[in-house]
Design a protein around this nucleic acid. Structure first.
Length: 462
DNA sequence: ATGGCTACGG
């Protein structure tokens, strides 16, 4: 009756029909066929324990486990409900949020219990497009249906409110949720409070968290350390670092990166080379604490060197970095932008600001040779450099080449050209450029107008 | 494909 399912892919194909059974905790049970009265016939069992990121739905937590060939705990639900949930999953996966919502309402109306996982995706989907109210409605329907939303479902809604700036509503959900919040819940809220400069309120939430015996983890401390760096300085943040260590929470590479960044951005550090020393110090001590620096560890330093106009040192670090960065490139490849690209951007921008656009151009060619694709930030820095140097015609030529090779300039790119034209007392051409920018569907920004107004004033047309 | 933390350009 139980066949071993040999291929992981087979499971993936049928992931909507995989169940878990408490009697065989390490087994995934693949159900393929409906059986008349008692639920579903078990066709295959796999012993794949860590099935990627897939979490099994319809988890059977009953201690009795399953009978031969049947999955209990699901047998009480109808096949219609099972299929209805499959349909909901499909809609949500295809991004058909409104259809999914209607279907959810409909299935609840028929007394079917919706699966919380597609509902969680639905909530996330509505939050993403700014429809937090609709997301809340999904949660209400879910709560009324007899399904039990888990902490993740609540976290998704809270995160949605946080991202749309509705901290008040996020806190309301926290207050009213029917399951205990976990450390992720608190981290989401703490992050948002810290970002909006409400460190004090964040500390109050932290107190509340501790009272509920939900303990901060490395991410909690990292969030607080970053905020403390900005609000009260690195020295204060270091105390938090000590505190987390004494509480047995080990700082990780992100924690150190946040501190390095804090030191590099600390006020007036440019005139106190000692502080740069402190940043390098942390960087060098990371391996002793069991952390390998990654390219994000170096970027703030590079940025610092670029601002300080110590380009030799910046380039020296760039070279150290490339090895490290390439190594972790795979690890981060899921992100839209590689760390090495940002590294080059930082240095190219630094050189451009010093008037060393030729050296910056060299780096552009170098990065291309290494198989890196420069992005709009790379090009904007170069356009800005040429404009500032007074080489507007060269900047415009470079700009035209970009357009020709299919790169779509953004407002910052256009602004750089206009700034160059205004500095060259050619505000009329800059205004023509504004017209061109708009005709290309690029919306001007506040800076656009500031640049043009200053240009006009500079030429005496106050 | 149910969740939380760091870096670049006007």
């Amino acid at each position: 009756m139980f066949n071993i399912c040999p291929v992981r892919q087979t499971l993936r194909q049928h992931k909507d029909r995989i169940f878990h059974c408490s009697k065989f905790p390490s087994a995934n049970i693949l159900v393929l066929k409906k059986q008349k009265r008692s639920g579903f016939k078990v066709l295959a069992v796999s012993v794949v324990e860590n099935f990627g990121r897939l979490r099994l739905s319809n988890v059977d937590r009953s201690p009795r486990g399953i009978g031969p060939g049947k999955v209990q705990g699901n047998s009480s639900h109808s096949f219609e409900e099972f299929e209805s949930n499959n349909y909901l999953r499909r809609l949500v996966r295809n991004g058909e949020l409104e259809e999914g919502f209607k279907h959810l309402e409909n299935m609840v109306y028929h007394g079917d219990i919706p699966d919380i996982i597609p509902c969680t995706s639905l909530i996330r989907g509505f939050c993403r497009i700014g429809k937090t109210k609709k997301a809340t409605r999904v949660m209400e329907i879910l709560e009324e249906s007899g399904a039990v939303p888990d902490v993740i479902t609540y976290n998704v809604l809270i995160s949605g409110y946080c991202k749309s700036g509705e901290i008040h509503n996020a806190l309301k959900v926290l207050d009213r949720m029917s399951v205990a919040p976990d450390v992720v819940t608190y981290n989401t809220i703490l992050r948002t409070l810290c970002d909006s400069g409400k460190l004090k309120q964040a500390m109050e939430v932290l107190d509340q968290q501790l009272q509920k015996e939900c303990y901060p983890d490395v991410i909690t401390y990292t969030i607080l350390i970053e905020a403390t760096c900005k609000e009260s300085g690195v020295a204060q943040a270091m105390k938090l670092l000590d505190e987390m260590r004494t509480k047995g929470c080990k700082p990780d590479v992100v924690t150190y990166n946040v501190l390095i960044n804090g030191i590099c951005k600390e006020g007036d550090w440019m005139r106190q080379s000692r502080t740069v020393g402190r940043a390098i110090d942390i960087l060098e001590k990371m391996p002793k604490h069991g952390c390998t620096p990654n390219s994000l560890s170096y970027n703030p330093l590079l940025h610092g060197f670029c601002k300080e106009k110590k380009m030799d040192r910046a380039i020296e670090y760039l070279e150290i970095m490339v090895d490290i960065a390439v190594e972790i490139l795979n690890q981060l490849s899921s992100k839209w932008c590689s760390p090495v690209l940002i590294t080059y951007n930082t240095v190219i921008d630094g050189l451009s600001k010093m008037g060393k656009t030729e050296r910056a151009m060299q780096l552009l060619y170098e990065m291309r040779e290494r198989g890196l694709k420069p992005d709009i930030i790379t090009y904007s820095s170069l356009v800005g450099g040429l404009s500032r140097e007074g080489k507007v015609e060269e900047a415009i030529k470079f700009f035209k080449d970009l357009e020709g090779s299919g790169i779509r300039p953004n407002a910052i790119t256009y602004n750089s050209i206009m700034l160059g034209l205004c500095k060259a007392r050619q505000t009329d051409r800059a205004i023509d450029f504004l017209v061109y920018m708009v005709s290309k569907g690029c919306k001007p920004t506040e800076s656009t107008y500031t640049i043009l107004i200053e240009g006009l004033a500079y030429e005496g047309f106050t």
